[in-house]
Amino acid sequence: MEPTAHTGDGKRVLCIEDEHFISELYTRALTKAGYTVDVQLNGREGLKAAQTDTYDIILLDIMIPSITGIEVLNTLRDTTKTPKLHAKIVITTNLEQREEVRAKIESQADGYIVKAEITPRELVDFLSHIEA
């Protein structure tokens, strides 16, 4: 396999993910591609980080402790609670949703990824498309 191009350019990624080994793999691949990555293990901390810090991309898992990714997404998209966000939000989940729920989530997010269907390197490729 050819090495991944450095597309990150120091852009900041917030990875809200409770599965340590997954966030480790994602951090590794993203850092290699030139991104700076922060990891938050639960919804509440993740939301706080997203609201107080500036990120270019937020990777958001749905099944996470304290508050769910859907609540985080809703809060981030609610302009009365969060000022308009610069970051692109990409849902990264292995959870299967009912059609109507998934459609609602997808309409609010900038991307939706089933983690088992892509490798970390493919995630990096995906993010470069989202940004473009």
Partner: peptide, 16 residues
């Protein structure tokens, strides 16, 4: 969901 989590890791490590 439970099957996909170890699969994600497997595929990630294989790639690494």
């Amino acid at each position: 969901h439970e099957l996909r989590t170890p699969l994600t890791l497997l595929r990630g490590y294989i790639e690494v």
